[in-house]
Simulated assay, not measured.
Amino acid sequence: MTLATKHRIYTTSFASVYPLYVAKAEKKGRTRAEVDEVILWLTGYSPAGLEAQIAVRTDFETFFAKAPALNPARAEIKGVVCGVRVEEVAEPLMREIRYLDKLIDELAKGKAMAKILRQPG
């Protein structure tokens, strides 16, 4: 994929979008800690690792490329976000970003954390 064909979100700083995720969740009565929990579950970052990525203003492409351990259960994330069915997104990086968007949507909609994190039971 050349720079000319990269989607703009790939080069957008994760730190610039993170506060929007937090605001969306908080507006619906959820917390920043819950947003962080979802991001850590998805990416395998430690809390310190996540903070470091935010501090250095890593772009989305690098944020996901450097993710320590993308959660294998993320393949269970299904549904529509921004009018797009996440499980049908062909481009791998865009699919990871849509997974994150979907998890934040579920959090904001009041879904139980165990269900968001695809825990059995």
Rank of each mutant, 00 (worst) to 15 (best):
F14Y: 06
G121R: 12
F63Q: 06
I9H: 07
K24M: 13
V38A: 03
V81W: 02
Q53L: 13
V22D: 00
P72I: 04
G83C: 10
V84N: 08
C82S: 13
P72L: 06
K27P: 02
H7N: 12
N71T: 09
K28H: 10
R74F: 12
V35W: 04
S13G: 06
A65Q: 08
K28R: 09
Y21T: 08
R74L: 14
A112N: 11
Y18V: 13
L50F: 03
A114C: 10
R85S: 10
T11P: 01
A67D: 06
L117F: 15
A15H: 10
E34F: 11
G83K: 07
M94C: 04
Y10D: 13
T12Y: 07
Q53A: 14
A55Q: 04
N71G: 15
P120V: 06
S13I: 05
A75E: 13
L117M: 14
N71P: 03
I116N: 00
I77D: 06
A112V: 03
T11S: 13
T43L: 07
A112C: 04
T2L: 09
V86Q: 00
E26W: 07
M1C: 05
F64Y: 14
R85V: 03
K27A: 14
R8F: 02
I39P: 08
A112P: 08
V17N: 00
A90T: 11
D59K: 04
W41P: 01
S46H: 02
A33N: 03
K6R: 15
K27D: 14
K111I: 07
E51S: 10
Y45W: 08
L50M: 06
A90K: 03
L3V: 11
V22C: 03
G121D: 13
T12E: 04
I54S: 00
A4V: 05
L103Q: 03
M1V: 14
E91P: 03
G49V: 03
A48M: 12
V22H: 05
S13Q: 05
Q119K: 15
A48S: 09
T2R: 08
I116S: 01
A15P: 03
L50Y: 01
L40G: 12
V89C: 14
W41N: 09
Y10M: 05
K102G: 00
L117G: 07
K102Y: 12
N71F: 05
G49A: 11
I54V: 05
K115M: 15
I54G: 00
R95W: 11
E87R: 03
P92M: 12
F60N: 12
I97E: 01
F63E: 04
K102P: 06
L100W: 10
L3D: 14
I54Y: 00
K66Y: 10
K109G: 13
F14N: 02
I104E: 01
V81H: 11
I97P: 04
Y18H: 15
